[in-house]
Amino acid sequence: MATEDESAVKEPLDLIRLSLDERIYVKLRSDRELRGKLHAYDQHLNMILGDVEEVITSVEIDDETYEEIVRTAKRHVPYLFVRGDGVILVSPPLRTS
C-alpha cells in the first residue's frame, strides 16, 4: 500500500515497517525474548533477524524451600527466522517524534 506519507502509522504493521533495518525487541511465547536487527517481515509477523541476542527465562521451584528460582539463559545467534505465531509483542527502538 503506497501512501503519500510513508512515515505514518495507519495500521499496526506500519510500526514494524518503520523498524526495518533497526534493532527491535521481540517477546515470544514460552518466556523467550529476542533483540536483533530486523531484516524482513511479512503479514504473519514471520521475521528475519540478524545479530540476535536470545534470552530464555525459566522459573524453578526449590524442592525444599519452595522458593522460586528464576534462571535466564542467553545466547547469540548471527541470523535467524522467527515464525510469526510465536510472537506476542514487538517493540521498535525508541524514536523521537
Binding site: 505465531d85 510472537v87 509483542l89 514487538v90 517493540s91 521498535p92 525508541l94
Partner: peptide, 9 residues
C-alpha cells in the same frame, strides 16, 4: 515500551 506492536491472536 515507547511503541509496542501486540499480535492480535
Amino acid at each position: 515500551y515507547g511503541d509496542a506492536f501486540i499480535r492480535g491472536n
